[in-house]
């Protein structure tokens, strides 16, 4: 892919203790996309990000950012990257604006108060610019971390579990922020173990487990490809058992006998719905309502990880 801004090839990381956190991971991250890396705790999400950003030395394999190798050409590579760590790591006694300016200087950019102001305003931190970071709430602190990462105008932003331990409202705010950043053309890689978050934000989803990338796919294609649909048929009269002639449809009784659930693959040529309807009619079963449900990413994810464990 020519539009990859980050290219990870055969990246392996074995820690000194012997734990292999990444096993030959290869991944292309496209310019301008939001890629969500989804995986259970300990899957290797943070190690992958840490290796790309220079916090962890890879055991083998290569990473390039904007075509620059992260080891040989680390200055050029790292200038393009902003990192928002999972833990809230902030100098507690420093003012918000000072710590953001510091980050900009650290990344070798000349002082630019207009840019710093823009970033702080965008993250609703401008009013808090002279507050010591220890005075801020958890959500504000996380936004300061984002402001620091954006202070040097990176082209790629890594968000390591940006909404871990954040309440629902704040999570929504964070999602809005991420979308705004994408609109500005920033490529975003976020790790999460909230499937909802990936579903909400991502263009593509990578699933990582046991240090391996299980798959990377366009979110819609993934959900479509793996998506099973369910047809829930609500009955006028409850049933105790499923009548014998309906057995071939693989129905399931639900809601205390008040509903029948039919599972089908919407990508298959024949869904079997018409035949089911005909059979129901033949059994003289009256319907009060019909609705369909789609698999969530969560179900897909659990399915994948479970299949892998088996």
């Amino acid at each position: 892919m020519s539009d990859a801004i980050v290219r990870v090839s055969d990246l392996t990381k074995t820690y000194a203790g012997g734990l292999t956190a990444l096993r030959s991971v290869s991944l292309d991250i496209r310019q301008g996309e939001i890629l969500a890396l989804l995986g259970p705790n300990g899957a290797g999400k943070t190690t992958l990000i840490s290796a790309i950003c220079g916090l962890v030395t890879p055991s083998s394999g290569t990473v390039t950012i904007g075509g620059h190798d992260i080891l040989r050409d680390y200055r050029a590579a790292r200038s393009l990257v902003g990192l928002v760590p999972q833990e809230i790591n902030l100098e507690p006694f420093e003012k918000v604006i000072t710590t953001v300016r510091f980050s900009r200087g650290l990344f070798g950019k000349p002082q630019n108060d207009d840019h710093v102001e823009r970033v702080l305003r965008q993250l609703s931190l401008w009013d808090k610019r002279d507050t010591q970071t220890k005075e801020l709430s958890g959500g504000m602190k996380r936004r300061v971390l984002i402001a620091k990462a954006l202070s040097h105008e990176p082209r790629v932003l890594f968000l390591d579990e940006p909404t871990a331990g954040v309440d629902v409202e704040l999570r929504r705010d964070m999602w809005d922020t991420v979308r705004e950043l994408k609109a500005l053309g920033v490529t975003i890689i976020l790790t999460t173990h909230y499937i909802e978050e990936a579903e909400e934000l991502a263009d593509r989803i990578g699933i990582i487990a046991d240090g391996e990338i299980k798959l990377v796919e366009d979110k819609r294609a993934l959900m479509h490809r793996m998506g099973q649909k369910r047809l829930v048929i609500e009955l006028s009269e409850p049933l105790d058992t499923i009548p014998e002639p309906l057995a071939p449809h693989g129905l399931r009784l639900a809601e205390g006998g008040h509903a029948l659930v039919y599972t089908y693959d919407k990508t298959a040529g024949r869904t079997g719905i018409r035949r089911l309807m005909v059979d129901l009619e033949a059994q003289d079963i009256a319907l009060s309502d019909v609705r369909t449900e789609e698999s969530t990413l969560e179900e897909i994810f659990v399915d994948l990880v479970r299949k892998d464990a088996a």
Binding site: C53, Y74, R75, R78, E91, L106
Partner: peptide
């Protein structure tokens, strides 16, 4: 030591310096 202790060292390690 302080950046190591509070974790802000991540920024030094990821900086182009």
């Amino acid at each position: 030591y302080f950046p190591k202790f509070i974790g802000t060292i991540y920024e030094l390690l990821s900086a182009p310096a």
